[in-house]
Design a protein around this nucleic acid. Sequence first.
DNA 1: TTTACATTTCGTTCTTTTCCGAAATTTCCG
DNA 2: CGGAAATTTCGGAAAAGAACGAAATGTAAA
Lengths: 178, 178
Amino acid sequence: METLPPIARKFILHWGEMGVRWGINRTMAQIHALLFLSEEPLNAEVICGTLDLARSNVSVALKDLQGWGIIKLVHLTGDRRDHFESMKDVFEMFRAIAIERKRREVDPTLRLINDCLDDSGKPKASDAYVRERLESMKEFFELALNFTSQVERMSTPSLVRVAKMGDKALKLLGLMGG
Amino acid sequence: METLPPIARKFILHWGEMGVRWGINRTMAQIHALLFLSEEPLNAEVICGTLDLARSNVSVALKDLQGWGIIKLVHLTGDRRDHFESMKDVFEMFRAIAIERKRREVDPTLRLINDCLDDSGKPKASDAYVRERLESMKEFFELALNFTSQVERMSTPSLVRVAKMGDKALKLLGLMGG
DNA sequence: TTTACATTTCGTTCTTTTCCGAAATTTCCG
DNA sequence: CGGAAATTTCGGAAAAGAACGAAATGTAAA
């Protein structure tokens, strides 16, 4: 950590805290930040050394980060050790995270809501309100899901273009959607 | 908990787990789910009883949920105790959460990135790549921030309309944005 | 103002999660 | 194959976070 430029150190620490707030652990987020800021792929040894973590811990975190699809394993010629590099396009990176969170959390939630709604085979009167709330949540998730699946299909440059249009885009759609 | 319809119990439990995954604690998320599914506002006492939690714990969670702007305190005539009800419009609810997360996490991150970029007063050669990465992240966050601030200004019904257009909306914009 | 009820604060305990390090396994070069 | 290097697994220690409950504070009706 002391070997890093202060500017990098500061960011890595902050990124770690953000990780915690989003249900990712500190270590994983820090490793990700380190790789993101690193020009060359790093091996596990270097990561332990820099961030002062146990080797095993780093190993697990790297696996996990690969599962999120935001870092990938690369082999450097003449070096037996695995090296890792982060996605560098920030836009792509957040898109990958979003897709993965959808898969891990939104999809199961929608399934559960459907289960709840099916399950109550004999619709008791007391359930009426609960069912109504769940229906409305289901509707929301389905809409969101449908929308994001469209977004996934778009290329990053198109999305950036839309985002840059900002209010112009939304106004346009707001008017035409009527 | 045993007093609840099974359908509600199931959802509350799941919502609690989702909370954990998103950096919200289980208790808070469960209380939120309970209020969301409840037709009438509930008081703290009832919440403890139903979810089997300590009174103090519930008190803190309720404060916290109010801070997120997704539940609010209401007074029932003839009852001295505070009662709480959840926002019921799911769309509005997630919008409130998004706005709050932006305020708590995205804004500070952007500030930190700016700090990093300013701080390194004497731009050392070794910082060059790090600065470049931070710049690109800054660009992304600014774009996202700008976009969401536009979204915040839109009415919920307009947003729903846009979302329902799905790919049609995006295609339209994708074509026009060129 | 008193008093009874309601809420919050705060230090402690308990649970969960993270992290470590030794041992086992895998990989791949000779 | 044999063996050195690298990685992963796994049980337990350490740290962090959540939840408790007693005491303090606040509140509003009498």
